[in-house]
Simulated assay, not measured.
Amino acid sequence: MTFTPYLVPAASVVWEQEIKKSRFITYLAHTPDADAAKVFIEQIRAEYPDARHHCSAFVAGAPNDSQALGFSDDGEPTGTAGKPMLAVLQGAGIGEITAVVVRYFGGIKLGTGGLVRAYGSSVNGALAELSTTEKIIEGRLALSADYSDMAQLENLFTQSGAHWEQLDYGVMVSGVLRVDIRLLNSLAQQIKDRTQGRVIARPLTD
């Protein structure tokens, strides 16, 4: 699992160009996982049922996660569409992103080199319009505390940017905190120190 924050799309983008009478309509969207990527690809296919090709590429996780990649030439010659599209996405260093390029054939063949350039430049053009936001990778801490310790703990949580995923008020206050994973171990230690060892925060791995 990556600990480093990475950029993800903040909003969807549509960008279009024409090359030798062929229309290339490019869609970019935030897709947090492979299932979301496949749903998005099918949505664009359904929106343009009369197009000859709906080529796609996705990075369905962190930018450097080689297990989260996919692409399709969708009828174009092998290696001329999906692969160059994926190469552009990977070069941008953006995660959780899917690109779909819809092509309406204009009657003039572009050749394999022309197709590679057309699909790559289509994704590049759309990326130039894309706004991004930073995704913080969070870890989780489980803890239980006396009510008397909560005031100083809540101050600590606010300072570290931690927030409750789950919170229960019973005989004790118990719950699960989410925090930037890079701060996980230091926050657990600070919780222990601030309460003289009365509260032990346990990292969750599931």
Rank of each mutant, 00 (worst) to 15 (best):
M1N: 08
T4N: 09
Y6L: 04
L7N: 10
L7T: 06
L7A: 15
A11F: 05
A11Y: 02
V13Y: 03
V14E: 14
V14T: 15
W15L: 00
W15H: 14
Q17I: 00
I19V: 15
K20H: 12
K20T: 06
K21M: 06
F24D: 02
I25F: 07
T26Y: 01
Y27F: 15
H30R: 08
T31H: 03
T31Y: 03
A34Y: 00
D35P: 00
D35T: 12
F40E: 01
Q43T: 13
Q43H: 06
E47G: 05
E47I: 00
H53S: 09
H54Y: 04
C55I: 06
C55D: 07
A57Q: 02
A57W: 05
A57C: 09
F58D: 11
F58Q: 09
F58A: 12
V59D: 05
V59M: 13
V59F: 06
G61W: 08
G61S: 13
G61L: 08
G61H: 11
A62T: 12
N64D: 15
Q67L: 13
A68C: 12
A68W: 05
G70Q: 09
G70D: 07
E76D: 10
G79L: 10
G79T: 08
G79R: 02
A81Y: 08
K83P: 00
L89H: 10
L89N: 11
G91R: 12
G91N: 15
A92I: 06
A92V: 09
I94E: 00
G95T: 09
E96L: 03
E96A: 03
E96P: 02
E96M: 03
T98M: 06
V101L: 04
R103S: 00
F105D: 01
G107Q: 08
I108Y: 01
K109L: 14
K109I: 03
G111N: 10
T112Y: 01
T112L: 07
T112A: 13
G114K: 12
L115I: 05
L115T: 02
L115V: 07
A118N: 10
A118F: 12
Y119L: 08
S121H: 07
S122K: 04
V123F: 04
V123L: 05
N124Y: 01
A128W: 03
A128R: 12
A128Q: 14
E129H: 14
E129D: 12
E129R: 14
S131N: 13
S131M: 08
E134H: 05
A142T: 07
L143R: 11
S144G: 12
S148E: 13
D149M: 02
D149R: 03
M150Y: 10
A151R: 13
Q152W: 00
N155K: 14
N155L: 12
N155F: 02
T158R: 14
Q159E: 15
G161Y: 08
G161N: 09
A162C: 09
H163M: 01
W164R: 06
Q166H: 13
L167W: 09
D168A: 14
D168F: 11
V173Q: 11
V173H: 05
S174D: 05
S174W: 04
G175E: 09
V176I: 15
V176A: 08
R178F: 04
V179C: 07
R182V: 09
L183S: 14
L184N: 05
L187I: 06
L187P: 01
A188G: 15
R194T: 11
T195M: 07
V199M: 10
V199C: 13
V199A: 11
I200Y: 02
A201Q: 02
P203Q: 05
L204K: 11
L204P: 07
